[in-house]
Simulated scan of single mutants.
Amino acid sequence: MKIAPSILSADFANLKEDIIKAQEGGADWIHVDSMDGHFVPNLTFGSIVVKAIRPHTHLPIDCHLMVENPDYYIQEFAEAGADYISVHLESTPHVHRALQLIRSFDVKAGIVLNPATPVSLLEDIIHMVDMVLVMTVNPGYGGQSFIPETLNKIKMLDKWKKEKGFDFLIEVDGGINPTTIKACAEAGAEVCVAGSYVFDSSNPKERIEALKHAVRDSD
């Protein structure tokens, strides 16, 4: 299981330091939540933050675009240093084009499923994605409670991968702690985004180790 701390819950006044703490604490990726205040009811940051943090971490930067018309922003995130860019199925009428655009910049392409979005809607584009991000809370704010019903989506995606021979990663985001990460791992998740659980602690390393320990216990 890869752990991807979300800087949405980091201390923005000490962002570099928090990222270094997460990296030294065993994080596998750094997760960036970009929100436009329209697609979701929150406003965060854009590609300029990715560009600012890129020199300070060797970890893959995983950018989750919770924005309307993500096509407008894909190039700037790619050029800022993103390794993964994920877009929501509902955020554009041309999701096929958005995924093509991401891959044209030699960046891994992800598609995001909201809690109420069925897995079946991915049938015609699943061959284009490197990752499926299952939202285990409603997108927009950190610190929400895990929605148990989303585990069914993870199981369906895992089954789909095995039956069809796909190699996309299954990522989950929202309400992650040692209990929920264990359930997600057992369902088939391979990457877990953890924001407030990691960064609300004075010891991010301890929290990351607790998450990884919980996954090992599920094996």
Rank of each mutant, 00 (worst) to 15 (best):
85 I>S: 13
86 S>V: 15
86 S>I: 13
86 S>A: 15
86 S>T: 15
87 V>Y: 09
87 V>T: 08
87 V>R: 10
87 V>N: 02
87 V>S: 02
88 H>V: 14
88 H>F: 09
88 H>E: 09
88 H>R: 12
88 H>C: 09
89 L>P: 10
89 L>Y: 15
89 L>M: 12
89 L>F: 15
89 L>H: 15
89 L>D: 07
90 E>L: 08
90 E>C: 11
90 E>F: 09
90 E>A: 13
90 E>Y: 05
91 S>K: 05
91 S>W: 00
91 S>Y: 00
91 S>Q: 02
91 S>I: 04
91 S>P: 04
91 S>G: 10
92 T>I: 06
92 T>K: 07
92 T>G: 03
92 T>A: 03
93 P>S: 03
93 P>Q: 02
93 P>T: 02
93 P>V: 02
93 P>I: 02
94 H>K: 06
94 H>N: 10
94 H>S: 04
95 V>Q: 09
95 V>M: 14
96 H>M: 09
96 H>G: 06
96 H>P: 02
97 R>I: 04
97 R>E: 08
97 R>G: 01
97 R>D: 07
97 R>F: 03
97 R>H: 05
98 A>M: 04
99 L>V: 06
99 L>S: 11
99 L>M: 12
99 L>Y: 09
99 L>I: 10
100 Q>G: 14
100 Q>K: 15
100 Q>T: 09
101 L>W: 01
101 L>D: 08
102 I>G: 08
102 I>M: 11
102 I>D: 14
102 I>F: 11
102 I>L: 14
103 R>G: 00
103 R>E: 06
103 R>H: 11
104 S>Y: 10
104 S>P: 08
104 S>F: 10
104 S>C: 05
104 S>D: 12
105 F>D: 04
105 F>Y: 15
105 F>T: 08
105 F>W: 12
105 F>G: 01
105 F>P: 07
106 D>E: 10
106 D>M: 07
107 V>M: 03
107 V>L: 01
107 V>C: 03
108 K>F: 07
108 K>M: 10
108 K>P: 11
108 K>D: 08
108 K>G: 08
110 G>L: 01
110 G>D: 07
110 G>R: 04
111 I>A: 11
111 I>V: 15
111 I>P: 11
111 I>E: 14
112 V>Q: 05
112 V>L: 05
112 V>S: 04
112 V>P: 03
112 V>F: 05
112 V>R: 03
112 V>A: 07
112 V>W: 06
113 L>K: 13
113 L>T: 13
114 N>G: 00
114 N>M: 01
114 N>T: 10
114 N>S: 04
115 P>V: 05
115 P>Y: 02
117 T>S: 04
117 T>V: 01
117 T>M: 00
117 T>N: 00
